[in-house]
Write a protein that binds this DNA or RNA. Sequence first.
DNA 1: CATTTAATTCAATTATCCTATAAATATCGA
DNA 2: TCGATATTTATAGGATAATTGAATTAAATG
Lengths: 113, 113
Amino acid sequence: MKISNALGALGALAHETRLAAFRLLVRAGADGLPAGAVASRLGVGATVMSFHLSELAQAGLVEARRDGRSIIYRASYKRIGALLDYLIEDCCQGACGARTTATKENCDETAAC
Amino acid sequence: MKISNALGALGALAHETRLAAFRLLVRAGADGLPAGAVASRLGVGATVMSFHLSELAQAGLVEARRDGRSIIYRASYKRIGALLDYLIEDCCQGACGARTTATKENCDETAAC
DNA sequence: CATTTAATTCAATTATCCTATAAATATCGA
DNA sequence: TCGATATTTATAGGATAATTGAATTAAATG
């Protein structure tokens, strides 16, 4: 992943509504959810949701497809995975690469986390 | 990690100068680097560097200590690790938790990443 | 104690982002 | 085709963030 892509993805996720939408779409799985469902589940208007979903799409974190009147969004697991790889490898240099789901027990959690 | 902390850390990293500074501090290791060294290595002015380092500190991603005239910054491995854990567990739900340094070979990279 | 060095803080400007409203597009069903 | 539904696009505003230069704090040195 290029640095400009990482910056775009980080910026896209650095917003309350967009992070919530992305988490919702990850949980929705490969089928995704229509934009309206995302908006109503998050309690935001259709217009603002459309704006934020397109920001996520621009960053490559979600993909859109039309299904009749609805536009279905789904999370790009490949893209979020690439971002995580970038952060772990290019930014952590192994210092926190061990703190993944595979080897999480190496870390002592604190309340501050 | 709480969602507000994750948002703060994502926002702090979503800036070219700050991401570069954080990467530099990660590579500098536990000893860290004085603010002036970070500024000159990145080719930015002392004032703007100070601003961005304090943003990173506010997000908990770096820590500052005074050493004589210098103020030494170092990366918080705990904090970046906590952010990665949050993204992997709360946002990926296992869909990309496998894409870590430990099990990276499961992923097919593309040019887009 | 005055000077130099290191870094921050303040104030002002500029740029960017977010929200809200209104209008437009696309699809479906009567 | 007409109206209803789903979503996007366009526009304008207000809020937030970033940059710059000057002033300030803090520590070391002669």
